[in-house]
């Protein structure tokens, strides 16, 4: 039977704002399917976002949703989770939102290991504001504010999350929507902070300027330029050189913040 997306969508909020060819809708589908796969109760699930194209996503889905300020999906999520640790809290953010203006919150949420799942809609650009370069715009690429190439070097979301202490870290792409769905489900089931780097595309403000072809070409690029980390270990180095690694990079059991907090309350005889 076909998947019933209608059950999870707010029809009154459509049409969405995303441009033709934008891959954010694919990532949204993966999130919806992952939630369905895990079987989360809608009324016990909260989706939190900041500002930007990706952050419009919670408006379209029928859960408890919170659209906040730029870069702040994680601190708002932390407040929600601490107030009611029984809620399932999912945060979504774009690359600029998560890693530039919200970069400090990103690393500290990783360090704290609170049971929140973050999906980074990573399309290498600030799309909504007109294609300014972001912390994941690759070196040398064109943006509206780098007309001759980006002098900065990009963050690797996976390495950053691992270095900062997140206990579940994975990467997939909008081409690999089913593995992405599995990772998001895995991240939701994981007890601790989960970061899923969801590579997606912005044909309008990034692809066009960098001559990356059509929206379909850009999605196809992921197929040809990614290697799963399990496969990468078995391939000769030249087959892995220059490719983006995907898969689950870390999944480790580690004390979770709300649990640790509850322990202190218990130890000191306080009330939770």
């Amino acid at each position: 039977m076909a998947f019933n997306y209608a059950e999870y969508i707010r029809p009154g909020k459509l049409p969405h704002i995303w441009c033709p060819g934008c891959a954010h809708g694919t990532v949204m589908k993966s999130i919806i399917r992952a939630i369905d796969r895990v079987g989360l109760e809608k009324d016990r699930t909260v989706i939190v976002s900041g500002i930007g194209c990706a952050s419009r996503m919670p408006g379209y889905v029928d859960f408890n949703t919170l659209h906040t300020t730029h870069g702040r999906s994680l601190p708002f999520s932390t407040g929600v989770k601490l107030a009611d640790p029984g809620l399932n809290v999912i945060a979504v953010a774009g690359d600029g939102d998560a890693l530039a203006i919200g970069g400090n919150h990103f690393i500290h949420t990783c360090r704290r290991n609170i049971d929140i799942t973050l999906i980074v809609f990573n399309n290498n650009i600030y799309g909504m504001t007109g294609g300014q370069f972001s912390p994941t715009t690759p070196h040398g690429k064109l943006a509206s504010t780098t007309p001759y190439g980006n002098p900065d070097y990009a963050f690797d979301v996976v390495e950053l999350a691992m270095g900062a202490g997140a206990s579940y870290v994975s990467r997939s792409t909008a081409y690999h929507a089913i593995p992405l769905e599995r990772q998001i489900a895995d991240g939701i089931n994981h007890k601790g902070f989960s970061v899923i780097d969801a590579l997606c595309t912005c044909p309008t403000t990034y692809g066009r300027r960098n001559k990356l072809g059509s929206a379909v070409d850009m999605i196809g690029w992921f197929k040809d330029n990614t290697v799963g980390i399990k496969a990468a270990g078995k391939l000769p180095p030249e087959k892995v050189e220059g490719k983006i690694l995907t898969g689950v990079f870390r999944k480790e059991e580690k004390p979770e913040y709300c649990d640790e907090y509850a322990k202190i309350i218990e130890k000191t005889g306080g009330r939770s």
Partner: peptide, 12 residues
Amino acid sequence: SYPIRPYTGIMM
């Protein structure tokens, strides 16, 4: 600079 509408046109 940092992008936000509408001033961001100045920086572009």
